[in-house]
């Protein structure tokens, strides 16, 4: 893949994202962000030109199984999203266990017995984390309906 071209396009997309996020700011507040947006845009264009003249070509997302990386990312997203209403304990229990089984299954055969043992370990680990943060560090974790 031509990583320079992808990088240039990404850079331009981010430039546009920030450009259209501007508001009606006073001159002093607008000066700095406007300058940096223009700089980012120009650099992105330069990278696009370079991608055409002297491209860097290398494989991307090649360190490992792409599906697994994508699904792990999705799982992280769902984990965080569900924490809002299910609370830290419950959603962490579910997604921690899911990820454990899923990643383990990549390199070994997973029996039902394994899963049982792991869920217990996960339940304990998440409980310890919850205890340390909520009780020792006085952090108010999202409680949800089943907080211990």
């Amino acid at each position: 893949m031509n990583t320079d071209a992808i990088g240039g396009v990404l850079g331009l997309a981010l430039t546009l994202g920030f450009w259209f996020g501007r508001g009606t700011w006073s001159p002093l507040a607008a000066m700095f962000p406007n300058t940096v947006i223009v700089v980012l845009g120009l650099l992105s264009l330069a990278l696009l030109i370079k991608s055409w003249v002297r491209p860097t070509v290398q494989p991307i997302f090649a360190d490992g199984n792409r599906t697994r990386m994508a699904l792990t990312a999705v799982a992280l997203g769902l984990w965080i999203w569900s924490m809002r209403w299910a609370g830290f304990y419950l959603s962490s229990l579910v997604f921690f266990a899911l990820l454990t089984v899923y990643i383990a299954a990549a390199s070994r055969r997973v029996t039902l017995r394994n899963v049982g043992v792991w869920v217990v370990i996960v339940a304990v680990e998440v409980a310890v984390l919850q205890f340390v943060f909520a009780n020792l560090l006085a952090v108010r974790l999202p409680a949800g309906p089943f907080a211990p």
Partner: peptide
């Protein structure tokens, strides 16, 4: 790794929340 990934993930979540 099957435990390390979610453990580190939960630390990242807790750390950025706290």
């Amino acid at each position: 790794p099957s435990f390390l990934v979610p453990t580190v993930a939960s630390m990242a979540i807790l750390g950025s929340f706290a």
